[in-house]
Design a protein around this nucleic acid. Structure first.
Length: 460
DNA sequence: TTTTGAGTTGTTCGA
DNA sequence: GTCGAACAACTCAAA
């Protein structure tokens, strides 16, 4: 089928791996040689914090190595770069995994159009999801707005087995031109996970052989390594969720079920963002536009205290400091600090969401923005408005010995046990250097409930 | 079209 | 200390 000597381009984006790569199979069908390409797109690089850039560069180095040092890295606008490279290697087809993000989808349309003008084709094979956004639909054809029925239909829909590919599926050609070197790591203080496909599979194997069966409970304990740590690898496609689902299918534990549900959440939020690209920046439920939020100098000061981990609430401060130290935060603690920003400080959820996206190594637009909206109550299937996390109760329940707090808040390192969650009750007073609580939680909870009344009356 | 059942992650209060 | 109920009403999904 392929003409002798025909080549194709495999344009990598959020699929920095060689196993389970449908694009490789499609490219092998179309041609007998391929060029591996990655485009450093300033539009995407600019809002990425140093942690994500550093991880990305590391993953690119790992991919380049897997391709025998033949990955071409070019900087520029993909709509200009991709057609130029395709022409240089005389490729009829450029192969990608479909992107369903607000920017990615527009970018791909522009690239597709530019390629078509030169008689070339952008071929989409697969996506970063087990089920592509837009596929899971109700009987009447409309998209789901509630998670649980989505998950049921999603599981019924099913997914393909992992594509059997590796670096040798294609013959990689030498780049026709010199690209740019993969940039050096950004200056990041945080300790980052090891980038790349091998690290992803090793991390997954550890989880699968270890805590997965106990995941249902263990995942809520920030003081213990009970989570999979796969988020960053999924974000950059160092592993495909299909691979994880195939391994989970062999497990028959509730822990494995719970983990499968977490993957479903990732797919649900990608689907929602696909339906409603504006929901990355605006309230999914627009009646929440009526929620009164704080602004001005006092709000800015409170926001700074939150970002710095100096709110005087130990579990909140520990989380915010873990974010700076590791460019990652335990999921349970993400909910606690988010609830605190939105319901104790009465600040807009998107302030917090933006801060997360700046620092998180695993920052994914769909999951991050909709996770925040869930906490704020403005999202799909949102938390009932009266559900306000109590940072002390949450700390005592999920960090019962206080080990998590002591690990990240050195001022409190000498306080034993769960007393660490309420340093203001200590006989000797709050340890030097640690702040007083910046708000009275009980008071702010009532204030939050009053503010939500405004949303309710705006609906009428 | 109408009806019915259900909806990630919590807190507080009173018995 | 433990336990169950209240906290509201609405929208969604499916029969």
């Amino acid at each position: 089928m392929a003409d002798q000597g025909q080549s194709a381009v495999v344009w990598f984006r959020r699929d920095l791996r060689v196993s389970d790569q449908p694009t490789f199979l499609a490219a092998a069908d179309a041609a007998d040689r391929a060029l591996g390409l990655f485009v450093l797109d300033p539009v995407l690089l600019k809002p990425s914090g140093g942690a994500r850039l550093t991880f990305l560069y590391g993953a690119l180095r790992a991919l380049d190595e897997a391709l025998g040092g033949r990955l071409l890295v070019v900087r520029g606008d993909p709509a200009e770069v991709v057609p130029r490279i395709a022409k240089a290697v005389d490729a009829q087809t450029v192969h990608v995994a479909a992107d369903f993000g607000p920017y990615g989808a527009r970018r791909d349309e522009a690239v597709e159009k530019a390629l078509a003008e030169a008689g070339r084709e952008l071929v989409r094979s697969g996506s970063p999801y087990a089920v592509a956004p837009g596929r899971v639909r109700k009987d009447d054809g409309d998209p789901f707005k509630v998670f649980t029925p989505f998950r049921r239909r999603w599981a019924d829909h099913g997914w393909r087995a992992p594509a059997e590919t590796d670096a040798d599926t294609l013959t990689w050609i030498d780049p026709p031109q010199k690209g740019v070197p993969i940039p050096a790591d950004e200056k990041v203080d945080a300790e980052l996970p090891e980038p790349g496909e091998k690290a992803a599979l090793r991390t997954w194997r550890e989880f699968l052989d270890g805590v997965v069966d106990d995941y249902g409970d263990a995942r809520d304990r920030p003081d213990r390594p009970g989570t999979s740590r796969m988020s960053v690898y999924l974000k950059y496609g160092c592993v495909h969720p299909r691979t994880l689902l195939a391994d989970l299918a062999a497990k028959r534990s509730t822990g494995a079920d719970t983990y499968r549900t977490e993957i479903a959440w990732r797919e649900f939020y990608a689907d929602i963002l696909h339906q409603r690209p504006d929901s990355a920046r605006k309230n999914y439920d627009r009646s929440f536009d009526a929620l009164p939020v704080e602004s001005g100098k006092a709000a800015d000061a409170a926001f700074e205290a939150w970002k710095d981990g100096r709110t005087g609430f130990p579990i909140v401060d520990a989380g915010m400091r873990q974010l700076r130290a590791e460019a990652w935060m335990h999921n349970r603690v993400r909910m606690i600090v988010a609830s605190f920003l939105v319901k104790d400080l009465h600040l807009p959820w998107w302030w917090g969401a933006r801060h997360f996206m700046t620092l998180l190594v695993d920052g994914d637009l769909a999951s991050n923005q909709h996770g925040w909206q869930w906490t704020a109550g403005s999202g799909t299937d949102a938390s009932p408005y009266f559900r306000v996390f109590n940072p002390i109760t949450q700390g005592e329940r999920f960090d019962p010995d206080g080990a998590y707090v002591r690990r990240y808040v050195p001022e409190l390192a000498d306080i034993p046990g769960k007393a660490v969650h309420q340093p203001w009750t200590l006989r000797d007073g709050i340890p030097e250097g640690y702040p007083e609580p910046i708000v009275d939680h009980k008071q702010e909870r009532l204030d939050a409930l009053a503010r939500y009344e405004k949303v309710k009356s705006a609906r009428r």
